[in-house]
Amino acid sequence: MSSSSRERSSRITEDEINDLILKLQPLLPDSRSNTRVSASMILKETCNYLKKLHKEVDDLSERLSQLLASGSFDADAIRALLRR
């Protein structure tokens, strides 16, 4: 297979992009699946949401580390932290 034909076969089509955008939209909080939103807006919201999730994971990891480092294994506190 030539490099140009490999390039063409590995490119994502506009229809595939649109399909992926439609799949992303309902995964976002406050998503209005029945409202048409631009692809760029959905991608921006997705990036912001992922950043927010990463921050939450970092915060929860830090809190869990603090609980474990304190030496007092409060099972209820750890369960509550993990349920968030």
Rank of each mutant, 00 (worst) to 15 (best):
S33K: 12
T46N: 13
A80K: 07
R36E: 14
N18T: 13
E7M: 13
P29H: 10
S72M: 11
L28W: 06
I17F: 12
R6G: 01
L82E: 06
I21P: 00
I12G: 08
L28E: 02
V37G: 00
G71F: 02
N34I: 09
M1T: 07
G71Q: 02
T46V: 10
R36D: 14
H54N: 12
S40W: 14
S4W: 15
D59F: 09
G71E: 03
L20Y: 14
G71M: 03
R63G: 01
K44E: 15
D58A: 08
K44G: 03
A75N: 03
T35N: 05
R36V: 15
M1H: 08
S9Q: 11
L28Q: 03
S38F: 13
D15F: 12
I12W: 09
R79H: 03
Q66I: 04
L53T: 00
S10H: 04
S9W: 11
S33C: 14
D15E: 15
P29F: 08
N48A: 13
D15H: 13
N48H: 14
D30H: 09
I42Y: 01
S10Q: 11
R6N: 04
I21Q: 00
A69P: 01
P29V: 12
S65E: 01
I17T: 09
A75M: 13
L27N: 04
R11N: 11
D76V: 06
E14I: 15
T13Q: 10
S3P: 02
L24Q: 02
P26E: 06
L20S: 06
S70Q: 02
P26M: 04
L64P: 01
V37I: 12
K51L: 11
L81M: 02
L22Q: 06
A39G: 02
S61M: 11
R11K: 15
A69C: 07
T35D: 05
V57E: 13
S72E: 13
I78F: 00
K51D: 09
R32T: 10
K44C: 14
E45I: 03
S70G: 03
E62T: 00
S72W: 05
T35G: 00
V37H: 00
D30N: 13
L81H: 00
L20Q: 09
S2E: 00
R6W: 04
D19I: 15
R6T: 02
L53P: 01
S5M: 02
Q25W: 05
Y49M: 07
F73C: 05
A39F: 10
E45A: 11
Y49S: 03
M41W: 05
I12Q: 13
D15S: 13
S33N: 12
L82A: 06
S4N: 09
A39D: 08
S5L: 03
N48W: 15
L81Y: 01
N18D: 12
E62S: 11
A69S: 10
P29C: 08
E7L: 15
C47P: 00
R79C: 03
D15A: 14
P26I: 09
E7H: 13
S4D: 11
A80G: 00
T35V: 10
L68Y: 02
D58N: 09
R36T: 12
L50P: 08
K52G: 04
K44H: 14
T46Q: 14
F73L: 12
D58P: 02
T35Q: 06
H54K: 11
A69R: 09
N18F: 07
P29L: 09
E16S: 07
Y49V: 03
R11H: 10
P29A: 08
D19P: 08
T13D: 07
